[in-house]
Amino acid sequence: MTAVLEASSLGKRYGRRWALSDCTLSIPEGKVVGLVGPNGAGKTTLLHLGVGLLAPTSGSIEVLGGRPADGPAQLGRVGFVAQDAPTYAGLTVDKHLRLGAYLNPSWDDQVAHHRIEELGLDPSQRAGSLSGGQRAQLALTMAIAKRPELLLLDEPVASLDPLARREFLQTLMEVVAEQGVSVVLSSHLVADLERTCDYLVVLVASRVQLSGEIGGLLASHHRLSGPRRDPGSLPATQDVIEESHTERQTTLLVRTDDAILDPTWTVKPVTLEDLVLAYMGRARDTQPTRRSGLKVLR
C-alpha cells in the first residue's frame, strides 16, 4: 500500500526548542486517520510540515510521494484546515469561493457552491459574522473544493459546540464517501475519532507510540484482571502496556495477537479511549523529566 504521508527522522526546531524531533511515521492511503497526543506532542508541527507551511530542520517528509509545497501541482493535491478554521473575516462567503477559484487550478466551483447551498450559508454574509460552526464548514468547503487527494485537518472541531461538531463530521464523512479522499485529523475528542476514523496514530513527544488500523488495534489489546501477580510472569507474546496493582489484585492492559488462555484472568475488550490513554500514559512515564508533578496523584 502506498503512503500518503511518510516521515523519516523528521525534526523541526524553533530557536533552541525542538517542536518535533526524530519522528518516523507512515500513513497508508485511503484512510481516515486520527492523530492524537498531548498538547506539545508535535501534532500541529507535523501537519504544518506535511502541507509545506514549515520546512524540516532535519530528516525528511514525503506527502503523496512528493515534497510538501513543491510547486503548484503538489499544493493542489493537499487540502488543509488549520487550527480554529481561519477564514477572512472581512470577506463574504461568495468572495471566499471566488478567491478559492482564483488561487486553485483544480477548483471545483460546482462542489463549492453545492456545499454552501446545502449548509444553508448566505453567500453575501461576511465570514466574520458567521457562527463558529459555519466558519469551520466554510474552511472545510474551501479545502474540499480544490479536490485534494489528502486532507489535513488540525483540531477542526475542538472549539465547536456538539451540534456543529456533528455537522462538520457529517460533511467530512460525506466527502470521504464521495471523493475517496484520505484524511489526517488531529483531535483530543476520542468519541469523535471512534466514529469517524479507521486508523489511529498516537504521538507523544515526537514519537509514534502506536499506529495502525483501529479494528486490528482493538482486537489485539485486552484488559486483564485477576489475583495479584508479577507482569514479568506473563507469556512473552503478551506486551504489557499499562499495569496497576492493589494488595490483592492486578489489572493489566496487554497487547497480544494470541488468545489469552490463563483462566485466572478475567478478560475484557478495550475501547479506543482506553488505548489512547494507556499509550499516552506509558510514554509519559518513560519520560522522567515530566513525571515530577504526577507522582502526587498516585
Binding site: V32, L169, Q170, M173, E174, V176, A177, R195, C197, D198
Partner: peptide
C-alpha cells in the same frame, strides 16, 4: 447508501 448513512451518523464510510 454509504453516503446517506455517513451524512446522518457522521461515521466512517468504510464502517
Amino acid at each position: 447508501t454509504a453516503q446517506q448513512v455517513v451524512g446522518k451518523l457522521a461515521i466512517n464510510p468504510n464502517t
